[in-house]
Write a protein that binds this DNA or RNA. Structure first.
Length: 558
RNA sequence: UGGGGCGUCGCCAAGUGGUAAGGCAGCGGACUUUGGAUCCGCCAUUCGUAGGUUCGAAUCCUGCCGCCCCAGCCA
């Protein structure tokens, strides 16, 4: 059972929502997922969406998808389209699809209202002056010399700002609050700035744009959002969020902040993700090593596995770093139940069965998924020359190595017991072939005399196998916390040089017509998914996640 | 030396005055034609720390320590 359906949800947000409903502060629940269309969604957004959409659903409410598109310098339609696609892919159904830019006219009216109340003014300070006047963390700011303009003058100036009479950056509209506040967000924050750039939705209609602070809460209010759930860095903005709503005398949603996701062995900051793409450290936003939704999808992560992960990690206010092993667990948990098993050899070692007839071919029955009887069985061709995994043979095996070795007998899965009788090497001493014998009595994998073998290994018939390319991925970074850099280093110094290894192997013929996106378990190796780079006759598989491997673990720990 | 937050097992995370859930990871063992899966068991006398209140404190109070966020006309 997945955490998604069984977890008892009693986090601080749900507790607050419950209280708000009980107290009558709200009579319904409405949330919103508010991405800025300036980049691709990643696993951190999945956490946010899980919180926004699931809480709404649990309380019989709805969740809107609203783009926070108040900065035309950074936002693009391309991202809007990609985000919509990714939200859908993750499996979330929004109620309304909105844009902050839908509210520009209304927001302008709100600003006018504040000016009329004497709560906002047009300021002529330059960006540098504004910073200087703001003061510092420990010293109060100074009031702008333009702070006490008359309402009439402010109204006139603001209208002319909108009309495009002033150059970019020359003036701002500011809220008149408190330049001495310990909370810097309250030191007369900018509400509107002049930006002479076309907006992806409103075109050139506007040359003044509201800031996040002046747009977000009012957008929430307009949509009747009850709970505006966001990340911790907005905690300092809550007093401002509430100030605007109060001064505007409009419906006031409740903002609640939670800790954003940090995942070990990866980075989630937009800036760093962009750098990885732009500077070519990965192949693109959908590189299977990227924590983007598109990267995860291509890697073989399913929407339900990602949602299960989000349910498992919970939500709280403490900064934390979730072990990526949890994400991997959610994937394995699902794929173990659903992925058909198949045999593929990634690092082939040729095996010749000396006593197996030259031209004989048998078709052996194999179970498609032991976790799901309804998946049925298939026939796998077997013949004299096979490939097995190089790792499954050792000439001088250590005590705990159960697999094939000179003179030793193992079982070929769904096949026969075979015994290694000779090792063939090339001039350099590399093992190039194994000569083995098989026991005809053990067809299917059981010995009539009841003798046991210590290991079962996978194989493919050389004459029937199809070649495949397999891309073996590992963590993108070598350190659990690549953001935490040492003196003189950057996160790039911790990139894992072995995060991708490409090998060419062989798989049983039933894989031949696998569609892109099809998941398999390559027995004893891991879960793999068909990559879009696949072409007829050239299948490419991405390793989504390995199987847990007690042997590898024991070896690692010495 | 300003303001806002946070500190419960290696990693997440419940708990909101009545005597420390659960998950991940790990470690044993059973079973096994995947060294997978599954099953069983182990894994915080203790909740950053020092005091205080109380019959009783992770939960209340006080002090201290540590970590995170804020000085964009970004979101």
């Amino acid at each position: 059972m997945s955490a998604e359906t069984t977890a008892v949800k009693s986090d601080f947000i749900r507790t607050a929502v419950r209280e708000d409903l009980a107290s009558g502060r709200f009579t319904y629940v409405r949330t919103r997922f508010p991405p800025e269309p300036n980049g691709y969604l990643h696993i951190g957004h999945a956490k946010a969406m899980h919180i926004d959409f699931e809480i709404a659903r649990e309380f019989g409410g709805t969740c809107n998808l609203r783009f926070d598109d108040t900065n035309p310098l950074k936002e693009e339609q391309e991202y809007v389209d990609a985000i919509i696609e990714d939200v859908r892919w993750l499996g979330y159904q929004w109620d309304g699809l909105f844009f902050a830019s839908d509210y520009f006219e209304q927001l302008y009216e709100f600003a006018v209202k504040l000016i009329k109340k004497g709560k906002a003014y047009v300021c002529d300070l330059s960006p540098d002056e504004l910073r200087e006047y703001r003061g510092t963390l420990t010293t109060p700011g100074r009031e702008s010399p333009w702070r006490n303009r008359s309402v009439e003058e402010n109204l006139d100036l603001f209208a002319r700002m909108r009309a495009g009479e002033f150059p970019e950056g020359s003036r701002t509209l500011r809220a008149k609050i408190d330049m001495a506040s310990g909370n810097i967000n309250l030191r007369d924050p900018v509400m509107y700035r002049i930006i002479r750039a076309p907006h992806h939705r409103t075109g050139t209609k506007w040359c003044i744009y509201p800031t996040y602070d002046f747009a977000h809460g009012q957008s929430d209010s307009i949509e009747g959002i009850t709970h505006s759930l966001c990340s911790l860095e907005y905690e300092d903005h809550r007093p401002l969020y509430e100030w605007f709503l109060r001064e505007l005398e409009i419906f006031a949603p409740r903002q609640i902040e939670f800790a954003r996701l940090n995942l070990s062995y990866t980075v989630l900051s937009k800036r760093k993700l962009i750098q990885l793409v732009r500077e070519g450290y990965v192949s693109g936003w959908d590189d299977p090593r990227m924590p983007t939704l598109r990267g995860l999808r291509r890697r073989g992560y399913t929407p339900s596995a990602i949602r299960d992960f989000c349910a498992r990690i919970g939500v709280a206010k403490a900064d934390s770093m979730v072990d990526i092993a949890m994400l991997e667990h959610s994937l394995r948990d699902e794929l173990n139940r659903t992925a058909p098993r198949v045999m593929a050899v990634l690092r082939p070692l040729r095996v010749v069965l000396e006593n197996y007839p030259e031209d004989k071919v048998e078709h052996l029955e194999a179970i498609n998924n032991p976790e799901d009887p309804s998946a049925g069985t298939r026939l796998v061709p077997f013949s004299r020359v096979l490939y097995i995994e190089q790792d499954d043979f050792m000439e001088n095996p250590p005590p705990k190595f159960y697999r094939l070795a000179p003179g030793r007998e193992v079982r070929l899965r769904y096949g026969y017991f075979i015994r290694c009788v000779d090792v063939v090497k090339d001039a350099q001493g590399n093992i190039v072939e194994l000569r083995c014998t098989y026991d005809p009595q053990t067809r299917g994998g059981n010995a009539p005399d009841g003798r046991k073998v210590k290991a079962t290994i996978h194989w493919v018939s050389a004459a029937h196998a199809i070649p495949i390319e397999a891309r073996l991925y590992d963590h993108l970074f070598t350190r659990p916390d690549p953001d935490n850099t040492e003196e003189g280093q950057t996160f790039l110094d911790y990139l894992n040089p072995r995060s991708l290894e490409v090998v060419t192997g062989f798989a049983e013929p039933c894989l031949a017509d696998s569609p892109v996106g099809k998941h398999y378990q390559f027995e004893r190796l891991g879960y793999f998914v068909v990559d879009p780079d696949s072409r007829p006759g050239h299948l490419v598989f991405n390793r989504s996640v390995t199987l847990k491997d007690a042997w590898a673990r024991a070896n690692q720990n010495g």
